[in-house]
């Protein structure tokens, strides 16, 4: 018996206990209390207690049945989509604007779902992004993050 425990369940157990510890630590550092009734630390300690119990329960589960066994995941598909999402955050953070960000996420997701026409999808994504951008700006007077392409529009 080299593996008598379920690894995912053990990881969850450790994460839950760690979360409980962080909550307790944060609560213990609160300096301001309420004058009457219970203060801002009461609820954190309740949550902390709950997480601790759940963490311990996961420990037991880890050495008994374990969590349901998932099927193997398609790593490539996941990578494409997550890459697209990271690209979107980076694009917004670096001021690339909404349209480019939309094109990135659209094309990468479509690629992750098995389409093999990246250029076409980038164009579709950009067109979709442009339409959304214009509708938001003109009809709702909400300006989505603007970059070089958006500057051309106005």
């Amino acid at each position: 018996m080299s593996r008598s425990f379920d690894r995912p369940a053990l990881v969850v157990a450790i994460l839950l206990l760690a979360a409980a510890a962080i909550v307790a630590f944060d609560a213990s550092r609160q300096t301001i209390t309420s004058n009457y009734g219970v203060g801002p630390t009461a609820m954190p300690y309740v949550v902390c207690a709950g997480l601790t119990v759940l963490g311990l329960a996961h420990f037991i589960v880890a050495f008994k049945d374990g969590l349901p066994k998932p099927e193997e995941a398609d790593g490539k598909a996941l990578l494409w989509i997550i890459g697209g999402l990271v690209g979107l955050v980076a694009c917004i953070a670096l001021g690339g604007g909404f349209i480019i960000a939309t094109a990135i996420v659209f094309a990468c997701t479509a690629r992750g779902f098995g389409r093999d026409a990246l250029i076409v999808d980038i164009v579709i994504g950009a067109v979709l992004g442009t339409i959304i951008y214009v509708v938001f700006l003109k009809l709702l007077t909400l300006s989505l993050p603007a970059g070089p392409l958006e500057a051309l529009l106005s």
Binding site: I81, G84, L85, L88, V89, I92, A93, F98, A101, T102, V105, F106, A107, T109, A110, R111, G112, F113, G114, R115, D121, I124, G125, L128, G129, I132, F136, L140, L142, L144, P145
Partner: peptide
Amino acid sequence: QPWLYAGILVFATMGTLAVNPSPVEL
């Protein structure tokens, strides 16, 4: 399906981008 889910993700981020376009929120 590829376009449907790509569209869903564009859609899902749109709301966040319109109301609070901070990288932390995204």
